[in-house]
Simulated scan of single mutants.
Amino acid sequence: MALQTLSVLVTRPQGQASSLLADIEAAGGKASHCPVIDIVELNDADQLQHCKQTIMALDEFQHVIFISTNAVHYGMEWIHQYWPQLPVDIHWHGIGKKTVAQLIEQGVPCSPYALDGAMNSEALLQTKSLQQLAQQKVLIIRGVGGRDYLAEQLTQRGADVSYAECYRRVLPALADGELVALFKQQAINTVCLNSGESVTNFYQLMGDNKISDITIVVPGDRVAAIAKQLGFSSIAIADNASDQSMLKALYNL
């Protein structure tokens, strides 16, 4: 039982943690779940109006990029409201195998590269159809805020980039001391954090109760750098945020 010495906290949003929790327990580890990000609908009138206007102009874009499974869930809800049939002559892209799988389930014809399961913006940028983008419009479907690296790189290649921000990521409303109590009850010694925002939210939720003798598992060097800046010292770096990569990193601890 490879993970029998580990008590792992999985911090994915509600409804997105079950498979990793099961994998950890199947490998002999103890697994607990406490989301450090909640995914919720838009509630701001201006944001709602901007999203509506952007989606209604969907047929003006040559490329549409969904950055996550959350983007597919909320983005396709918006698209189905105004486009009973998808507009033609669009290159559809998804980051990550799960994102691609959800798009295919909804009848969205993803670009062939996507079947390779690129898990981040850097991998997506290697796609052949995204190299020369002069006079092409690209729509990135995502939550409010977030990383602008992808848009910046596409703009440098000549693209006119827009966002359809169709959901929000918020800090969960945990009771005072709830997360610290879970650490003590479950003797947690390892935490899986799936993004830079997850790292900063976890840090904030722990408050003054910083725990020095834990290992955090993060996807990639960029997120590891964020964790180091916040003072985390024991950091394991997974290839990406997929269940398979996070589990592999746990095996290697």
Rank of each mutant, 00 (worst) to 15 (best):
P109M: 12
I55N: 06
C51L: 10
G29C: 03
P84R: 09
C51N: 09
D59V: 00
V100Q: 08
V36E: 10
Q106M: 13
S121R: 07
I39Q: 09
I95T: 08
V100C: 14
G28V: 06
I37D: 13
D44A: 01
N120F: 06
A114F: 13
H80P: 00
Q62D: 11
G117I: 09
I37M: 14
I67R: 02
M76Y: 10
L48S: 10
A114R: 09
Q106C: 03
I79P: 02
C110L: 11
I104S: 11
E77R: 14
Y113F: 12
N120Y: 07
V36H: 13
I67N: 05
A31Q: 11
W92I: 04
P109L: 12
Q126D: 01
D89P: 00
V108T: 05
N70C: 02
I95A: 05
A57S: 12
W92H: 02
I67G: 04
Q53P: 00
A118K: 14
H73N: 07
A101G: 12
G29T: 06
T54S: 13
I104D: 11
V108N: 09
H80Y: 10
Q81L: 13
Y82N: 03
K30Y: 01
D116M: 12
Q81I: 07
D89I: 00
I65F: 05
L48A: 09
A31V: 03
Q53S: 11
D38F: 04
V64H: 10
E60S: 15
S121G: 15
L124H: 11
K97T: 09
V40Q: 03
Y82P: 07
W83R: 03
H93W: 14
W78D: 04
I79Q: 10
L42V: 07
Q85S: 10
P84K: 11
Q62P: 00
A26F: 03
Q102E: 15
F61M: 13
A114S: 15
K52A: 10
S68F: 01
A57M: 09
I104L: 15
L124T: 07
Q102P: 03
D116G: 07
L48P: 05
Q47L: 12
Q106A: 07
A45L: 12
T99E: 11
T54Q: 15
V36W: 09
Q49V: 02
L86N: 08
T99A: 10
E122Q: 15
L124A: 09
I95H: 04
K97Q: 10
Q126M: 03
Q85W: 00
E77C: 08
D89V: 01
Q81S: 12
Q53G: 06
L115F: 15
Q49C: 06
E77K: 14
A26W: 03
G107K: 01
V88E: 12
K30I: 01
C110R: 00
Q47N: 08
H93V: 04
I79R: 05
Q126R: 11
L115N: 06
M76F: 11
C110V: 15
K128D: 06
T54V: 15
I39H: 08
M119G: 15
L115E: 09
D38H: 13
